[in-house]
C-alpha cells in the first residue's frame, strides 16, 4: 500500500466554529482560517492525509477524502 493521496478536504462551514485547532495542529500547515473565521484548506498540496484535523475537530466539521 502506497502513501494515501488526498482527494479533497470536505469542510462543513455550517458546523465549523473557527476554533483554530485544526489550523494549529496540522503538521504541514495546510489549513487556515478565512476572513469569516472558517477553516479552509489553504495549501492542500502539502496535505499528508494524517487526518489529525478530522480527528481533533470538536465540531465534526472536517472530512479528509482520499483517492481510492
Amino acid at each position: 500500500m502506497g502513501k494515501p493521496k488526498l482527494k479533497e478536504h470536505i469542510i462543513n462551514r455550517d458546523w465549523c466554529k473557527g476554533c483554530g485547532i485544526c489550523v494549529e495542529f496540522c503538521p504541514k500547515k495546510v489549513l487556515a482560517l478565512d476572513d469569516r473565521e472558517k477553516a479552509v484548506a489553504a495549501r492542500p498540496e502539502d496535505c499528508i492525509c494524517c487526518r489529525l484535523c478530522e480527528l481533533r475537530c470538536p465540531d465534526l466539521a472536517i472530512e479528509i477524502l482520499i483517492e481510492e
Binding site: 455550517d14 458546523w15 465549523c16 466554529k17 473557527g18 476554533c19 483554530g20 485547532i21 480527528l55 481533533r56 475537530c57 470538536p58 465540531d59 465534526l60 466539521a61
Partner: peptide, 18 residues
C-alpha cells in the same frame, strides 16, 4: 442537531469525535 451547542474549541466535541 448540528452544529452542536458547545462553545468553539470545547473539548467535549473532541471527546465526541473520538
Amino acid at each position: 442537531f448540528f452544529p452542536h451547542m458547545w462553545c468553539p474549541g470545547c473539548g467535549h466535541g473532541v471527546v465526541l469525535n473520538a
